[in-house]
Each structure stands twice: as structure tokens, then as C-alpha cells.
Design a protein around this nucleic acid. Sequence first.
DNA 1: TAGAATATTTCACTATAGTGAATTTAAATC
DNA 2: GATTTAAATTCACTATAGTGAAATATTCTA
Lengths: 196, 196
Amino acid sequence: MVFGKKVKTLRKSRDMTLKELSILSNVSSSMLSQIEREEKNPTIQVACQIAEALNTTLSYLLDEQEDKDIILLKKAQRPIYVDEKSGFQRHLLSPSLSSQGIEFILNIIPPFSESGVFPAHKVGVKENIYISKGRLDVELGGGSFSVELVEGDSFYFAADTEHRFINLSNEECHYFLVIDSTHYRGGSSTLPKDNK
Amino acid sequence: MVFGKKVKTLRKSRDMTLKELSILSNVSSSMLSQIEREEKNPTIQVACQIAEALNTTLSYLLDEQEDKDIILLKKAQRPIYVDEKSGFQRHLLSPSLSSQGIEFILNIIPPFSESGVFPAHKVGVKENIYISKGRLDVELGGGSFSVELVEGDSFYFAADTEHRFINLSNEECHYFLVIDSTHYRGGSSTLPKDNK
DNA sequence: TAGAATATTTCACTATAGTGAATTTAAATC
DNA sequence: GATTTAAATTCACTATAGTGAAATATTCTA
């Protein structure tokens, strides 16, 4: 954890002095000095005050990812997964960076076919879809909810529930999918429901 | 900050006892008890130990967003911004949730036209694009880098630099854009470069 | 380079985070 | 419902986070 260093960097980048930050954050400048040099270990409370004064969040200050600059993915190179049975295709459009919580995917469903049931994601995971061609039925929670989408529509949902995509029409359906897992971190994968 | 409550919820959801968590995290169970009831205020160090023991991150435990479930956006309703001069269009495909750091957009550039120069985003902001129709030249950093993309290509880049999209062909260019701002929080908007 | 002005670090002190053992509460077993 | 067992809380104590003022280092100006 390089919390202190990050604070110092940010503070410097704002051209702030310890005293200024002290006033904004309501943390003594001596404390700030010690924190920046990792001599003392702030409570999350004061860490939070500091984050706010720097106009940021503690989450950010604690996040250690630092990543790549640019990645070009030519059509021919992109990973494609095809379900032999249904003909359902998944084209990965975003690089798969471990540190990244976003996936950008183009999905194609043949006429009168479907994606199969996707199990619930972890809590906090969101999906955003856009229909670029054809029609699509989205079913959530094992059928407890469903919408019919047509070309040009988009749909956003919390993906911590079963979901399924169905193409009831006689033409291919193309839709883009953005999966946002950036807010997931906790949550238990496959919890035993009740084992008393 | 409801840190303690979150810890307790997570611990319970894993069917763990204070003692178990204590062993894993190397934090005394009395301390844990007090933290969960907000009687004491952990340092980020022990908060971190707890997060790890719960197989999560401190960022997550401190994140307070809790949001919507589903949002349907019909084609006719979606917000579209058109630049009268160039004819450049931006179609917003994702809901604009303040808490959300993702934007999903469909952009359309007329033949022989361009987007204009987008100023650098804050550090940490990423863009991911996919060309669904036509050709597109992407220029980064005021011309210091450029690529030519064709239908089917996708491109990922750190958007903390000037960027510009150009359509040099005689047909419309359609491209999808995913802007990920989830990892930005700090950073100064328009820093005075050098004011000694 | 000397001297004023400001930013940072040090130090002695106070408040509170963090601990281990004892106590209480809750839950299971007979 | 009494007894045992385990989980959660309380308590007295120790370690350390956090403070204000003094000392030091740094930057600026003449």
C-alpha cells in the first residue's frame, strides 16, 4: 500500500501545501507529513478526509492499478467464441486486461436461436446492451422479467441475476454488450445456501 | 461511511465467526466486534487486512454506490447530440447514472468529416472503440500517434491525451465508443502547467 | 550570499486504535 | 429448563494515531 506516496503526488499536482491540505481536510499538517512519508498509518476516517480534500475518493487512493496505453485489435485477430450447437457467437472487442473491469463484446444470434442461460454475475456487475440488427428478447431472473428489443434500442440491467437472450425472428440478431464489473469485488462465488 | 456494517454483512454472508475472521485477518476479534458496531475506527492497515481476509478489497468496502436495476432506452428516446457544422452525431446508449463510470455511445461521422479535437480526459479514463461501418482515423496526442481503422476493428486507448476522429472516406463512419471513467477520481481538471 | 518567508519535519504530549482475558449472551444438547 | 459450548461483548491495558508548537529545511528576493 503506497497510500502516502499517492497523497503526496496528488497534493503536489494541485500545487497545494501541507498547510492548505490540512485546512481543507481538517487533519494536522504534521500528521499529513508523517502519512506522506509512511511514518504513520492513518485511520480510514482521516484517510477519507484527506481524499475528500483532494477531491477524490478513498477507493481511488487505494486502487493500485496502473495500466497500458493503447491496444489495436484488428477484426481478423479478435477472439471469437462460437457455440457449435446454437451458432451463437461472441466477438471480444476489448482487450482483456486483468486490471480492467470492462468487457466490450459483439454478440450474434442466428434466427430462431438463443444464447442459453447465463448464470447470475456477482453483485455489482452491470450489463448494457445495444441492438444493432434484428430483434432480441431479454429474459431476466429465470423468466420473471422480459423485454423485447428492436434495432436501435438499448438496455441496461444489474446482471446479478440469471439472464438469457433470445432471437425469435427470422434474421440474425447483432447486439453489443458492455459488461461492467468494476464495482464488483466482494461477494461470494457460489455460496452454500444453507448448511446447518 | 458504513464500513463496519458492510464488514459484518460480508462476514455473515460467508458464515464466518468473529474468531475465524480474526485468524484470517490477524486482527483481534474484540477489535472486529468494535469495528462492526462502529465503536472504533480502524486504520487503513487493519481495514485492509480485513478486506483481504474477506477476499475483497478495501476499495470495494468503501464504495458506497448502490444503484438501479434495469433501464430500457428505446431508439426514439435516446439522447442524440449533433454538431450542426460537421454533422457529427453522438447517440447515448447507456443511462447516465451519476454513480456510474461507464458511457456507451454510438458516434456517426459523415463522409470527409471529423469529430473535432476532444481534449484530454482525466488520468485513468479509458476509451474503447469499435468500427461498425466505414473507416476511421484516430489521432492521439495532437498528431503524435495515429491509426487507420476499418469496419470490424477495435481500438483501446488511455484517453488522458487529446484525441480526434476523422473519416477520410466517402461513406458514413459508425463507431461505438465505451468510455470507462471508473478509475478516475483524482486528477486536476486543467492544471496550470507551470506557474512559478 | 544573506536574510526573509514559507514549507516541511521533529518532538513531547493526548486521544484513541488495537489487544488478551474475563464476562455476558446466544445457541445447541441432553 | 438446566448444562454445555460457542459466539459476541466488555474491560483494563498497551501501542500508536493524531495534535500543536518549536526546530529545521527549503525557496524566494534583494
